[in-house]
């Protein structure tokens, strides 16, 4: 098990290497170079050259890379001139709020998705199954932002039940103190995820219901409820946990869209603004962080799979 972990971590590092090289390369894709992009078309050539030298962009790539990685390892993710803040500071400020949104949204999606998916499997091919399947399809096919827009339109603008914008504030505490403003963003965020989990649980439980070991359980005298919760649930859950770990890119994408629609002061909105302002340091820093989170998520997914499935654990 330890050996397995070590090997996975080594793999992680290899992946991190590729990713950081790629991200740095991205920066150089800005026409005229990153400094030109930052300063804008009106900067003079001398100004650009000056900053190039200052930030080390005139060095060969591998030198830049080395310096940058060195910086990263020291926790220095750069500085955003537009916002007059270190990127790390920006992260420290905005990440917790995004985590609140993502966490709540994922929780809601699981709370509804897993039981409803199981229910669908048990009541397969009946009316309720079809209705719920229809809702899942809507979840897949509706762009997150459109669904968010609709929620705002129906529940905020027209009926004034919930406020149209997310809670504003710079700290988590301030955000959490306006729970009514959190409702719509969380629901909008959760919809797509709900569709994923419920669809998966449905097909997984349906597969399991015809397995031999379920027949054995029935032959022992177990009731359908016991079969479902005592046997099938555990086996299907294993894969959901793994799926969770692998769905980080989706979680990130959702965060960006929801935060933009609701003006939620989290990392997604900050990233979007940074893109519009071509604030490359912020963009890079955020991307590296998100990548790291994804990689760690993959690792956790693998580890949890190994832990939960005894066939992997004991071979």
């Amino acid at each position: 098990m330890i050996g397995y972990l070590i090997r996975r971590i080594l793999q992680m590092l290899i992946v991190l290497f590729f990713v950081t090289v790629f991200t740095l390369f991205l920066v150089h894709l800005f026409p005229g170079g990153p400094i030109r992009a930052l300063l804008g078309p009106r900067a003079t050539v001398e100004q650009v050259a000056y900053f190039n030298k200052l930030y080390g962009f005139d060095q060969p790539f591998y030198v830049q890379y080395g310096k940058w990685v060195w910086q990263l390892l020291h926790g220095n993710l750069g500085y955003s001139p537009k916002l007059n803040q270190t990127v790390t500071g920006l992260i420290a400020q905005d990440l917790p709020k995004t985590i609140v949104l993502v966490g709540l949204g994922t929780l809601v999606s699981l709370v509804f998705g897993i039981p409803l998916g199981m229910y669908q499997a048990v009541k397969r091919y009946t009316v309720s199954d079809y209705v719920l399947t229809g809702i899942s399809f809507l979840g897949y096919a509706t762009p997150t932002f459109f669904f968010a827009l609709l929620l705002v339109e129906w529940f905020a603008v027209d009926s004034h039940i919930f406020p149209p914008f997310a809670p504003q504030g710079s700290s988590v505490g301030q955000v959490l103190s306006q729970p009514r403003a959190l409702v719509l963003p969380v629901i909008a965020y959760a919809f797509l995820l709900y569709a994923l989990w419920s669809r998966y649980m449905r097909s997984s439980v349906m597969d399991n219901l015809v397995q031999d070991y379920v027949r054995t359980a029935r032959a022992k005298g177990a009731s359908e409820r016991r079969v479902l919760w005592g046997h099938i649930f555990r086996n299907s859950l294993t894969a959901i946990v793994t799926l969770l770990g692998l769905s980080l890119p989706t979680l990130v994408a959702g965060a960006i869209f929801i935060e933009v629609v609701f003006n939620y002061p989290g990392m997604g909105l900050a990233f979007y603004n940074a893109a519009l302002n071509v604030d490359y340091q912020t963009l890079l820093g955020f991307t590296v962080l998100a990548t790291l989170a994804t990689i760690v998520g993959n690792l956790l997914a693998d580890v949890s799979y190994a832990v939960l499935d005894p066939r992997v654990r004991y071979t």
Binding site: Q11, I14, V15, F18, V19, F22, T23, L26, L29, L248, P249, V252, A253, I256, F271, Y272, A275, L276, V278, L283, F286, T287, A290, T291, T294, I295, N298
Partner: peptide, 20 residues
């Protein structure tokens, strides 16, 4: 490994950057 690396980057972020 290359594919894994690619999949680790949240694509939406990179696509936004590239679009910009």
């Amino acid at each position: 490994r290359i594919v894994d690396a690619g999949l680790s980057i949240p694509y939406i972020m990179v696509v936004i950057i590239l679009s910009v």
